[in-house]
Simulated assay, not measured.
Amino acid sequence: MLEKRRYGAGLPASPLLAAFFTAVVCLFLWRLSSCPGPQGTQLVAPSYLLLLPGNATSLPPPYPMHKLAPSDRTTLIDVKDFSFQLNNFPCNGSSSLLLLVLVHSAPGNVDKRRTIRETWGRGSHRVLFLLGAVESPATQEALEEENRTYRDLVQGRFLDTYRNMTYKHVMGLKWTAYYCPGARYLLKTDDDVFVNSPALLDFLAQDLSPWGARRLILCEPFAFAYVKRSYRSKWRVSPREYPGRVYPSYCAGWAVLYSPDVVFLLYREAQRTEYFWIDDVHVTGTLAARANLTQTPLGSLVLSSEQVQFMVGSRDNHSDIGVFLFGPPNLSRTEIHRLWQVVQDRRPAS
């Protein structure tokens, strides 16, 4: 579990000084290495603040929209005539929504969206699916019919292609800032990921804070990742696209939990920064660094592929597997249904 951040409470002077020195050294060596802790764990410097009754009202609101350009509503990075082709408003001005979930989905992934609606998308949280534009009128009509049925699609006026994923990610930040400012947390995820939504809601309310947080980016981070230059790589990036040899620390994009102030900071940076097509690197790496934000690791809260296979293939109650919040990406619809059944079986009867 993540520890709630406490800044020196109850520590004698010398351990506090040692902890401060360790944090400074870690920050200094951050781009070159990681600082090991006991038994090979990593020491994570406090990087976020939990809101509690004593400090929640003293902090400024997370969305100072007056700081954005007058043309911001119709701009998405370098798209100057942006609008939402499909839109929904499930937050309805609520100031008490604990969790908003925005799922990156491709237009043709109808069955994946249905699977999420039938499993972990159910509950007190709000789930929306983010899409780009399509060229086929028949496909667009099918999406509009799906949206009339479920009212959970958000579609932007940019083509839904692989190299346009950053538009989709930033569109999600934009939508949150404009249409759901009351959400305490935002989860960005993909449509082939399992979210243990009951455990996640408990985690937010009990292990973090039901009042929310500030400066929180909770994810599975990558540090010191080299830019791929090989023409054989799906992730090839030319020196013109990204001159550096190493990316900044960034998140695996399949599960990123943001506090609302981070949503605004990243969105504002995106609106004034040149486009880069790998959204995980650009949004949670480059833009986060520009906003002076750091990532907090999920650690053991993510299931491994081996644990997924054990849970999917076994009939016991999996009591030896502790609390988890996410399954890994690239899960099949059958695996997601089975994991949801396991989660339901493990929860105490109400």
Score class of each variant (00 low, 15 high):
3 E>S: 03
5 R>N: 09
6 R>I: 04
9 A>G: 02
12 P>H: 07
17 L>M: 06
17 L>H: 05
18 A>N: 01
19 A>R: 00
22 T>W: 12
23 A>Y: 08
26 C>P: 09
27 L>W: 13
28 F>W: 15
28 F>V: 11
28 F>K: 00
36 P>M: 05
37 G>L: 10
39 Q>F: 14
39 Q>P: 02
42 Q>S: 03
45 A>C: 12
48 Y>P: 04
50 L>F: 04
51 L>F: 14
52 L>R: 11
58 S>K: 13
61 P>V: 12
62 P>A: 08
62 P>K: 07
71 S>Y: 10
74 T>Y: 03
83 S>F: 08
90 P>W: 09
98 L>I: 07
103 V>L: 04
104 H>K: 06
104 H>A: 09
105 S>L: 11
107 P>K: 10
108 G>N: 09
109 N>I: 00
109 N>S: 14
113 R>D: 02
117 R>K: 07
118 E>R: 11
120 W>E: 10
120 W>S: 09
121 G>T: 03
122 R>W: 09
122 R>L: 07
132 G>W: 15
141 E>M: 11
144 E>T: 02
146 E>W: 05
147 N>T: 05
163 R>W: 12
164 N>M: 05
165 M>S: 10
165 M>I: 08
166 T>H: 12
167 Y>G: 02
168 K>C: 00
169 H>M: 11
174 K>L: 09
179 Y>N: 04
182 G>D: 04
185 Y>G: 09
196 N>D: 13
197 S>C: 01
199 A>N: 10
217 I>A: 01
222 F>D: 06
224 F>Q: 11
224 F>P: 09
225 A>I: 12
230 S>H: 06
232 R>V: 13
233 S>V: 10
234 K>G: 11
235 W>V: 11
239 P>W: 09
248 P>F: 10
259 S>A: 15
262 V>K: 13
263 V>R: 14
267 Y>M: 08
281 V>K: 05
283 V>L: 03
284 T>F: 02
285 G>D: 10
290 R>S: 13
295 Q>G: 15
298 L>E: 03
298 L>D: 00
302 V>S: 15
304 S>V: 01
311 M>G: 00
320 D>S: 00
320 D>E: 02
322 G>C: 00
325 L>G: 02
326 F>A: 04
326 F>H: 04
333 R>Q: 12
334 T>K: 07
337 H>S: 13
342 V>S: 04
342 V>H: 00
